[in-house]
Amino acid sequence: MSDENGSGEPTHAAAVLEHIARSLVESPDGVRVEVVQGDGRPQLNLTVADGDMGRIIGKRGRMANAIRTVTRAAAARDGVEIDVEFLD
């Protein structure tokens, strides 16, 4: 186990979301992941360059669902539950 484990900060989740997004889009440098800590559970907001969101969402939202699943698995490693939002 890494020492960051269970820190409550979704560090691994954010890294995983960013890695996946950068691997899917046309413009990797346009990928931004922002962690918003509110009253509820932390939210990871993903923004990408113009025209790249379609690759993230996929057909009928399939890619978006897959990305959420993997990002949440990484959040489990951070010891926290998270939401993932795709901001267009």
């Binding site: 996946i20 691997s23 899917l24 889009v25 690759r55 996929g58 399939r62 897959a66 993997v70």
Partner: peptide
């Protein structure tokens, strides 16, 4: 792992 597989397929396509 199914989700990772699906994303991998799209990464390859891209």
């Amino acid at each position: 792992v199914d989700a990772i597989q699906e994303i991998s397929r799209n990464v390859l396509q891209r």
